[in-house]
């Protein structure tokens, strides 16, 4: 799928939504809850169920990365399902908050 920076994607099985912060190097399958994600404006296919292997949850405002493809995602809506790229579970990126400077 074409994953452009800034584009929004939603889970096909629950409320989870993400924004692409950094695009992947090549073509990838962006998945959530064990199923490919759908562009935010499109209709999600019906009848899919959450896979237990991808049900660790996604949080709003957390960043997730996949080292291999270089993709970086930001949780835009929370949900029960968790994210994966080409079947690989993403990892939570450590935030390095600064002392408030503005």
């Amino acid at each position: 799928m074409q994953v452009k920076p800034g584009s929004r994607w939603k889970s096909a099985v629950d409320t989870t939504e993400v924004v692409i912060v950094r695009p992947p190097k090549g073509d990838v399958s962006l998945e959530c809850g064990g199923h490919p994600m759908v562009a935010a404006g499109d209709e999600a296919p019906a009848g899919l169920v959450l896979s237990a292997d991808f049900s660790a949850g996604t949080s709003v405002g957390k960043r997730y990365v996949d080292e291999e493809s270089g993709i970086e995602l930001l949780g835009a809506k929370a949900g029960q399902s968790s994210l994966a790229v080409d079947g690989r579970p993403v990892t939570l990126k450590d935030a390095k908050p600064l002392p408030a400077s503005d």
Binding site: G61, R63, L74, A95, K96, P97, S101
Partner: peptide, 17 residues
């Protein structure tokens, strides 16, 4: 650009902190 500003924000500030 939007990308410059949001990059600054999400890499230096924790959401809802």
């Amino acid at each position: 650009r939007h990308g410059n500003l949001t990059s600054y924000v999400i890499s230096t500030v924790e959401f809802m902190a």
